[in-house]
Design a protein around this nucleic acid. Structure first.
Lengths: 266, 266
DNA sequence: CAAGGTAGGCGTACGCCGTACACTCGTCAA
DNA sequence: TTGACGAGTGTACGGCGTACGCCTACCTTG
């Protein structure tokens, strides 16, 4: 390498941006070319996701030696927190005006939109030992929307818990609709069909649900069901329930006793 | 080591049990004593959780060399799946008789009880590439309860999505109520109070919520709010919403159009 | 201009990880 | 007796995060 070309210096921001890009899967944006040869048999560490993000790979992407990164981030955990902070910071600010339900709805859907671009983020967020500043800003702002809408602090507290990860744009879609084992890459169509049939025999209700999803759609979208619709369904369900409690003047202290004291009951 | 004592042979089940115990944090149940000295500076890998579970530590716990484990599990991923399968298998079978809502409720609460004993399980479950047989059994059984209760396949499908991880006993309680940074182990009470005050100034709504939780409880329980109550609140909210839709004959196809087509609206 | 401080990047090294591969050894059937 | 076989062993490799010390380009100050 000719040393005449002056390398743009590292910075915390540049490190974080490269890390996010690497986790997103959009690698190979740096300058220096790395060694071509790969390792032997391990085969661990895909081309995207947190698995693909190692300090060494990130350094290579930036054309720098691994230890150089430690001048800008304390350690890998702080790097991950910084990445989350950057991503969460992309969530739209609250739209002014509309009523609290709409505002929260827009906020959450914006968060979802952002997180969909960084599929690694939910897992990383859940692995953090503490929320990042941007997360706290977002949570605080959502809480503020509830409170400004007239909800009691008590109800808002429970509402935030009920919304859970949805506030940050993700709900755990446990697995996509593909069958377990997910067509292991070297499988013919008849084999897959046979496996599906066996599965249907073993788990009839699951099969029925999957089939009904396909019928309802009219076509198979993203494995047979509409993620976005599912997300909004759950979101609206929760929001409407919360709204009803609010209008009813519900208070948690009146329901502490019985385990079956349904909040939206009777 | 005296080689007179015949070691009970390994088996897949013994490996899985030891792995679960190690992840639970109840280690040191094996036979052979390991080397005392620990490593130098890394300090990664606590005394419990998935972090603490390495093939090497597990082997040591079983008084065996690491590679011996590979005669009983294909690799670490399969080990984790086996652990999850064992744990999910502990969930109570459905109680007969009562109406669908109660049955689901008991089932989910049983799942929660089980998972509370294995705090590492949710994270591992979310990291699995596909559901395990025991998970499929559980999901199928819950779906069956909905269907036997008269819910349409369509509504049941959406209900399962809405319930999400709760069906398996966990909802992401993003973080406990402790302040970020969580009293970093070398901190005096005045310092903590000052930090809390600063936090309250920066995030007024969060502080208000936290305070109201403490007041409602009358005492600080597990960081200021009752996890169990939060969990049941969200659960009942969702169940009642679903029940209402069911009794109303709600169908998803009538709500596909608008983005604000709230399922329980009006 | 020289002298000295500073901070960013480098190289080396350590202990950990998962696991491929070839081995030994106890057991049992023929 | 012998041969196959399966459980457990030993060694080794590539990868990981990162502690620690060095080297050098830069900026300040005189």
């Amino acid at each position: 390498m000719a040393e005449g070309t002056r390398r743009t210096p590292l910075s915390r921001e540049r490190v974080l941006r490269a890390a996010v890009a690497l986790a997103d899967g959009s690698g190979a944006g740096g300058g220096a070319g790395g060694s071509g040869g790969a390792g032997g048999d391990g085969a661990v560490g895909g081309s995207a996701g947190v698995e693909a993000l190692s300090m060494r790979k990130l350094a290579q992407e930036l054309g720098v030696v691994p230890m150089a990164l430690y001048k800008h981030v304390a350690n890998k955990e702080e790097l991950l927190a910084g990445m989350v902070d950057a991503v969460v910071g992309e969530i739209d600010p609250p739209a002014p005006g509309a009523d609290w339900k709409d505002v929260v709805r827009q906020r959450v859907l914006s968060a979802r939109r952002v997180l969909r671009h960084h599929p690694w983020a939910p897992r990383v967020i859940e692995s953090l030992p503490a929320p990042t500043p941007a997360m706290l800003d977002h949570l605080d702002s959502v809480i503020g929307t509830f409170r400004s809408g007239g909800l009691s602090a008590d109800l808002t507290h429970h509402a935030m818990h009920a919304l859970g990860g949805r506030v940050l744009g993700f709900s755990q879609e446990l697995f996509d609709a593909s069958p377990p084992g997910g067509t292991p890459a070297g499988q013919t169509a008849p084999e897959a069909a046979a496996q599906a049939a066996e599965l249907a025999a073993r788990y009839p209700y699951i099969a029925e649900i999957a089939a009904s999803a396909v019928h309802t759609d009219g076509s198979v979208i993203s494995g047979g069901c509409d993620d976005q619709f599912e997300f909004e369904f759950a979101l609206d369900l929760l929001l409407d329930g919360i709204d009803r409690l609010h209008r009813r003047g519900w208070t948690s202290s009146a329901h502490r006793g019985g385990p079956s004291a349904a909040p939206a009951g009777g």
